[in-house]
Design a protein around this nucleic acid. Structure first.
Lengths: 232, 232
DNA sequence: GATAAGACTCGTACGTCGTACGATTAAATT
DNA sequence: AATTTAATCGTACGACGTACGAGTCTTATC
């Protein structure tokens, strides 16, 4: 069986500089590593989108051969999974107020979640995969703990978590995909207006032109939270 | 410029049977058409999933050459878009009660939406695309009209629509992707339990084992609707 | 009926992609 | 010094999407 990397990170060795003589490798190619691969994959995804991530191109950016990646990573899918989770790291609420009200903490957690993904729009289209990386799990755990502390009963806990998760996921995916240029959006609305009289209501409310996404997200979230644990 | 199909359907001609002599073509290959292509694509997607849809395979199922598809369709992406929208056709609420309460109609519309997608799990992973096909638009229009009729002000209308849309999208994608076998689910929870003590709360609530998806969807939806237009 | 103009089909071929395989080299261990 | 392990990477193979252009069949025009 071919050797395969898996467990912990523990290397600090392994030279391979392109410039042959100098003892140190201050820049150039600092050796491959999972971290570097994932970080570069995120860069590449940011720059070129989901379809722009090719193993060869990723390797190029890393100054490595394409097949070298496969020692660190099982396949391309895994790169996607890792990149997605990497983008979802949570640094916690601002520490100024240690014990915030639960509602504030949840709102912060979820808004940050959405913001993290919107900073990397490709991440939204990667969501439809069964990736429960550590960072996602941490967020779920935190969410769960906060809700639990807020008095949500165990019976309702999972429902609450999934509802909030669903809402965030849906909002983020929608937002990421409808984040057209103004021209695109106008064109879409135009098409809607001209091409058919079948959609009078959404045409009138200019559904496709509305772009207060942040406000809408926040309002809907408040409604949901009201329902999940009514303000006392 | 190469001829390209676009507008209305108006053919009823064009023979091409494999068996050369018989005047009629009762079965075999009934000629290509956009409808047949889309319908077969849906079949193929149902059978093989998103990755299973290849142009050659689709053509095979249609008894046609691969390149023949490209007369009816611009590219593979378009097949995805069409298949997605095809699956989202809405037949309306049960007509027994003509004028239902608005809330019942909305719940029906959204539950049907979700159900339609879950009948074709691949459709969930196709959602992250900017596809506003006619069937989606019809659903949005209907949703909008119903909400409007229920007294939601114009100012809140778009927020309400997007909130509901987000919720449905998120719930469906989540559900479609976590619809593991019992074994898979148990394994995931197992991994969660063993692999780390970092997630005590979601481990305890057995988040990954919970599978009353339908109930959770309905409850969360009710919360949201309560918020959007409180029952008077 | 002859001819031209589309409408539609499809075989071949090209470029690109993921990655299997094995050779190669460098570091760690004995 | 010899062996083992960690890591890199060139080559090559089998998909896949689809450009291109040559075919065929249908319809319109004279």
């Amino acid at each position: 069986m071919a050797a395969k990397r898996s467990g912990a990170e523990s290397n600090g060795s392994g030279r391979r500089g392109a410039s042959p003589q100098s003892g140190q490798e201050p820049r150039s190619e600092p050796t491959l590593s999972l971290e570097r691969i994932v970080a570069t994959a995120v860069e590449l995804l940011d720059a070129e989108g989901v379809d722009g991530l090719k193993m060869r191109r990723l390797a190029d950016r890393l100054g490595a051969g394409a097949m070298s990646l496969y020692w660190h990573v099982g396949n391309k899918e895994e790169v996607f999974d890792l990149a997605l989770d990497a983008v979802l790291e949570y640094r916690g609420p601002p520490e100024i107020v240690e014990s915030r009200d639960w509602r504030g903490e949840i709102v912060h957690l979820l808004e940050d979640w959405r913001a993290s993904m919107l900073r990397h729009p490709w991440s939204a289209s990667l969501l439809p995969r069964r990736a429960l990386g550590p960072n996602i799990l941490i967020r779920l755990e935190l969410l769960s703990k906060t809700l639990s502390g807020a008095g949500v009963t165990d019976a309702d806990l999972n429902v609450a978590i999934w509802s909030l998760w669903n809402y965030v996921i849906g909002a983020t995916i929608t937002r990421a995909n409808f984040d057209l240029s103004d021209d695109d959006r106008a064109a879409a609305q135009q098409r809607l207006t001209g091409l058919s009289q079948h959609y009078p209501t959404i045409e009138r409310s200019r559904l496709l032109l509305d772009n207060d996404w942040d406000g809408a997200f926040r309002k809907g979230l408040d409604f949901l939270l009201d329902g999940l644990a009514p303000r006392q």
